[in-house]
Simulated assay, not measured.
Amino acid sequence: MTTIQQLDVDLKGKDLLTLADLASEEIIGLIEKAVELKEKTLKKQFDHPLKGKILGMIFDKSSTRTRVSFEVGMIQLGGSALYLNGNDLQLGRGETIADTAQVLSQYLDGIMIRTFSHSSVEELAEHAAIPVINGLTDLYHPCQALADLLTVYEKKGKLAGLKLAYIGDGNNMAHSLMIACTKVGMDVSIAAPKEYFPDSAVTAKCEKFAEISGAKLVITDSPTEAVKDADIIYTDVWTSMGQEAENEQRLKAFHDYQVNEDLLDLAKKDYLFMHCLPAHRGEEVSAEVIDGPHSVVFDQAGNRLHAQKALLVEILKD
């Protein structure tokens, strides 16, 4: 596998609200750090660089991968993780985000939050004296995209020059993939019904990132256009948490956007299939694809641990 050039990364004490906050060199540096930490983890070599550090984890949305990967990551790095259900905090009884941020800063070394409104995470970071990591909002999912880049790098040996096609809702996952790809020089095509296109402000940012990196960004309502000659095919659920009332409407709107074997005949023969999970087989993806030989969805899930460990080490280090 081609080695990414080792780069110095200095993220000490910084927030991660979106990958747009990071320079391309910082993203590459985190991937290289994740590769290093994964090798050590697989050999059961734990250096405990975060001994004595405590990460508070606020959850307003249910989670499997986010909670387990951050909690296990902190333990393996020698620190501790404290689960905080948003409804159990005084936030649930009307305490302001600003006050909560200042109070938690007295006890913790960092905060990871998984919630709905991105503006709430921005406000938390503004008033906290400790780093804040976005574990997911309705607008962005940066930690997943970082793990996805790690997975692509492991499987393909490079990032720049590859093409990723995302088929489905222009949601937080689409936004973070657009940012991640255009930052590191990967072409990215998003296929969605026009009424579900990605946020125009996010698209405008990514167009600027693409100009700098040399990547190509395409937003289309044609799945076949997006998938043609793609190295990576990616999809996500059509109805995310908080959108359950729109489920029937969305099932109709995305009917022709299922990732199946017929569609993938247009991709490169050695394509990777990716999905951030949980998946709904028979909706956004056929069982033959997600359970087939090109699928790397569980490698993606596993790499959440290693990518987030890299992020935690760099942000919380002394």
Score class of each variant (00 low, 15 high):
Glu284Phe: 05
Lys269Met: 01
Ala145Pro: 08
Met74His: 07
Tyr153Trp: 11
Asp60Gln: 14
Asp199Gln: 12
Lys156Cys: 02
Tyr234Met: 14
Ser240Thr: 12
Phe197Leu: 03
Ile212Trp: 00
Asp187Ala: 13
Leu22Ile: 00
Leu84Tyr: 03
Tyr166His: 14
Thr41Phe: 10
Cys181Asp: 03
Pro193Ser: 04
Gln102His: 04
Lys43Ser: 13
Lys51His: 11
Lys163Gln: 09
Lys228Thr: 12
Ala20Thr: 00
Asp291His: 06
Lys43Ala: 15
Leu136Glu: 01
Leu177Trp: 14
Glu25Asp: 15
Pro49Asp: 13
Ile113Glu: 03
Val184Ala: 06
Ala34Glu: 08
Ile54Leu: 15
Lys43Phe: 01
Phe59Pro: 07
Ser63Gln: 10
Tyr153Asn: 04
Gln6Pro: 13
Ala191Thr: 03
Gly94Trp: 06
Lys183Cys: 00
Asp318Gln: 12
Lys51Arg: 13
Gln258Met: 14
Thr220Tyr: 08
Glu248Cys: 01
His141Arg: 10
Val285Lys: 02
Lys156Tyr: 02
His306Leu: 07
Leu164Lys: 03
Gly135Val: 10
Val72Arg: 09
Asp21Arg: 02
Ile54Trp: 08
Asp60Asn: 14
Ala34Phe: 10
Ala267Ile: 01
Gln243Glu: 15
Pro278Ile: 11
Ile233Glu: 00
Thr115Ser: 12
Gly168Phe: 03
Cys143Phe: 04
Arg114Glu: 08
Ser120Phe: 11
Phe197Met: 05
